[in-house]
Design a protein around this nucleic acid. Structure first.
Length: 256
DNA sequence: ATGGCTCTCGCGGAGAGA
């Protein structure tokens, strides 16, 4: 089974690109972030034709998450309890009656001085509390975490320590998420490799290797034990026949 | 030091993103 996470930076702007990727990579379950789309505008029929059912938790202009799946889905939770005012950022579904699949678009925080930063930390505290309330035995938590876990995950290395995305407080929150019994599938399999999932649109960052690894697939021990391979799909951070890419690449994991 | 690009809304240019 192939599972994936991808911040598409606008569903409407990425529709054709997304459909091409689905047909090319054939994932079974995909968590999408930053749809910037209301639920009623989602073209379910177009995706059924490709073999995918979708559950969306969207909103107008900002945020928005969804799960696409070739296997049967059932909604378990829409929105992070107690943090709905922060936007549509969390969706948990049951896949095929077996796998608890959560996708998140974690808050950005803007800057360490901004009020959104404190709200970001509080949102993570809410996520930790939410996860503690779930079973989590056969579970995936994937998405755009907007936190760079270690210096290896930033093109600037330790020089970025203390900046937004790289603060001790943010890293402690992400570590607390991992301490809930979740494994960072990419880092678990590739302890020493530097691979990014996001590159700024500006200044040729992608070409210059100026990126961050902030899009993660976390899995419970049962999921980790079934991991065959995991990779960032960098080809889809590049233009395809004139279609503009998201600033995030998909991350794909194959499970036994 | 800042912006460098792209998105949405909505029709100009601002705000957000990371």
């Amino acid at each position: 089974m192939k599972i994936a996470t991808w911040n598409i930076n606008g569903f409407a702007a990425r529709l054709d690109f997304l459909k091409r990727w689905l047909q090319d990579r054939q994932p079974d379950v995909v968590g999408l972030q930053e749809l910037k789309l209301i639920d009623d505008a989602f073209p379910h029929e177009e995706f059924r034709e490709l073999g995918y059912e979708a559950i969306t938790h969207g909103q107008k202009a900002w945020n928005g998450v969804a799960v696409l799946s070739r296997l049967p889905l059932e909604i378990l939770q829409t929105g992070l309890p107690g943090h709905e005012e922060a936007g549509a950022r969390l969706l948990t579904v049951m896949v095929d009656g077996d796998l608890e699949f959560t996708t998140v678009y974690c808050p950005n925080g803007k800057s360490v001085e901004h009020a959104d930063y404190a709200a970001k930390l509080a949102w993570f505290d809410g996520l930790i509390e939410y996860w503690q309330s779930r079973d989590g035995a056969n579970a995936v938590l994937c998405g755009d975490f907007n936190i760079v876990h270690t210096a290896l995950d930033s093109w600037r290395g330790a020089a970025a320590d203390g900046d937004i995305f790289h603060t001790q407080e943010e890293r402690a929150r992400l570590q607390a998420v991992l301490d809930l019994g979740l494994n960072d599938l990419y880092r678990d399999r590739h302890p020493d490799e530097q691979t990014f999932s996001w590159w700024d649109y500006r200044g040729g960052s992608c070409h210059r290797g100026h990126g961050l690894r902030i899009d993660l697939i976390l899995g419970s021990d049962a999921v980790r034990d079934s991991l065959l391979q995991v990779a960032t799909d960098r080809d889809y951070r590049k233009k395809q026949d004139g279609m503009t890419a998201s600033d995030h690449a998909p991350v794909i994991a194959e499970l036994a």
